[in-house]
Design a binder for these strands. Structure first.
Lengths: 352, 352
DNA sequence: ATGAAAGCGCTAACAC
DNA sequence: GTGTTAGCGCTTTCAT
């Protein structure tokens, strides 16, 4: 690797026989440069391969064009999709992303992470850590707010923070209502860890659907899983032990649903003839499970896109109004959709 | 959101009745500060919540503590793991990551992306785009090198660039040798797109293993897939049509292997009794497929970690030697391992 | 032990 | 049209 000293605006200026100021003007397309001078400078810029130092420019312009993204480690399908959506829109709008993956999302490290990102002069922070236990408690103190806008992805609409999210509770409802509409009455639930808000909300949707159908659920219909497939496998065994009349299972993600499918197969129960199964997330593999898995699809790329969009607006607003009007925090909820496949069809036939 | 004006070193200085330099000294733990002054300054820092501007600091120190990461969109399991590994080690070493996801990895946008990252003063670039077609051709020109170190993840060891990778060809060999050792003789292959280097290398491993066993393969044993499960499903049908004596399939990723499993089931072929299957990547779901899938595991988190480690050393070396000694590019290859499950066991029983 | 001056690379504001 | 001066927030001389 060579190229020790990076080329600065001064080098270009000297080489072109002009002042740094003029080089700057050329680069920023300012009008007041003589045609001839401009061409000469551009030639030197091209020859030297000069690229202005974005950091220095940011320092004076008081803009970094950088967003901080705090997100849990990407082992969950949804989080990757989210990140993709965020990155795409960010790029389109000219922002770079400073990435922080959080290995232990249940810990309350917000304070620390935010300080860190702020020190690096991000113009906004996108917070995509799932709500677990009280890992958001650091927010409560910070009553007035931050030096930069912050937006949450996921969780429940809050009064004091802008947020975009999926109506995950409705997802739980959709899944359950679908099973009910197929004629199943004894519907078990395998949740994610109940410390996770998203787990509790999906459970709520399930509960609501059952209650509205006149079938208020009991505790022995519920098993708490922990997301990986193994807990779905265990979960089915537990459910059957506690609730033998079980006809159908709603698993709160597709991995656990996969575990259920496998356990069913080992128990000699055919899906869906002997047991119906619905998952959540609609991972690409779900269509190839045995049986093909009915699941709840969330448009997470769109959600990420939306988050950046909102963030951009907040930044722009702040830019215009130095007075910091602080628009009322918006919340946007996207609706999930059910994708019906064989695993939940009473007749056992593929839909359509 | 409030807090309009960020607090600078000057504010702290004024508040504490000292000069900015003294504040700087306190923050950087320089010795020559009177105990009393130091305490006073620290108190003000805490009160104001002062956090030095890392950008400004970087400007003068000529260090950004930032690495650029260029990586394909995260729909492939391997890439997420890689990114996790990269992020972890980077954080440990005090680097932030500037993330660029590439939506169309087959395009040759290297020049552009690198310029962009350099403008933002990254200290090194980690290049994790799979080698597809000639999407690396931009490198050939740049004979001398870059302003900053660059390391590749994946691909084949090259003479002119530092690189860390998995010995994926050997992975293909391991998978095939395993099938041979189980007594299968007619082993088909479903590759990824053959424009991808990694596909060709896995194919090579398969070929070698067969040739060494005295069973040099013919073209009708090969089908080109495109990674998603659908192409595995199609692939099995094609293979059976062209090569009816097929006993086993090596699919170059687990998604395609899943497609094979599904197609087999629909054709009434039991796995492994009637058809053995091996995949690649060892995604977490593989153990729950039907049958549980034998697969090749790659330690991708470790690979990412390693890449950052190497990068760090290059940066340090450059720091010390202003003369830019340019250590000879290292290449490191990690070995993959086979994870044996039921889908490839002749007897049809689980291993161990 | 502390402050004043200079400068990192760039641009805004004013000269001329 | 173009150059000069000043300064973004910080640290590194070098005085004192």
């Amino acid at each position: 690797m060579a190229a020790k000293k990076p080329i600065t605006i001064k080098h270009v200026a000297r080489e072109a026989g002009v002042s740094p100021q003029t080089v700057s003007r050329v680069f920023n397309d300012h009008p007041d440069v003589a045609r001839e001078t401009r061409q000469r400078v551009q030639k030197v810029i091209a020859e030297l391969g000069y690229q202005p130092n974005a950091i220095a420019r940011g320092l004076i312009k008081q803009r970094s064009h950088t967003l901080g993204v705090v997100i849990a480690e990407l082992d969950q399908y949804g989080l990757q999709r989210l990140l993709v959506g965020v990155e795409r829109r960010a790029n389109e709008l000219g922002y770079s992303l400073l990435l922080r993956l959080v290995h232990e999302p249940e810990l309350d490290r917000g304070e620390q992470l935010v300080r860190d990102l702020l020190a690096r002069q991000v113009e906004g922070i996108i917070w995509a850590i799932p709500e677990i236990g009280d890992n958001l408690s650091w927010l409560q103190d910070r009553t007035p707010g931050f030096a930069v806008p912050l937006i949450f992805i996921g969780g429940e609409p809050q009064s004091h923070f802008p947020l975009v999210s999926i109506d995950t509770r409705n997802g739980g409802r959709l899944a359950t209502e679908h099973l009910l509409s197929q004629g199943y009455r004894h519907i078990g639930l395998i949740t994610g860890p109940l410390t996770w808000g998203v787990s509790r909300r999906r459970q709520l949707g399930w509960q609501e659907a059952l209650s509205m159908a006149g079938l208020p659920p009991t505790d022995n219909q519920i098993v708490e899983g922990d997301w990986p497939a193994a807990s779905g496998e265990r979960g089915l065994h537990q459910l059957l032990a506690r609730y033998p009349q079980l006809e159908a299972v709603f698993a709160c993600n597709d991995q656990m649903a996969l575990g259920v499918l496998r356990a069913a197969q080992q128990l000699g129960r055919r899906v869906p003839e002997d047991l119906a199964v619905v998952g959540f997330d609609n991972i690409p593999e779900a269509a190839y499970f045995w049986s093909p898995l009915t699941s709840v699809r969330q448009r997470l790329i769109d959600l990420g896109t939306l988050a950046v969009q909102q963030m951009h607006q907040m930044i722009e607003a702040k830019q215009e109004d130095e007075e910091d009007v602080s628009l009322p925090p918006t919340a946007m909820l996207l609706q999930p959709e059910l994708v019906v496949r064989e695993s939940s069809i009473k007749g056992g036939e593929a839909p359509q």
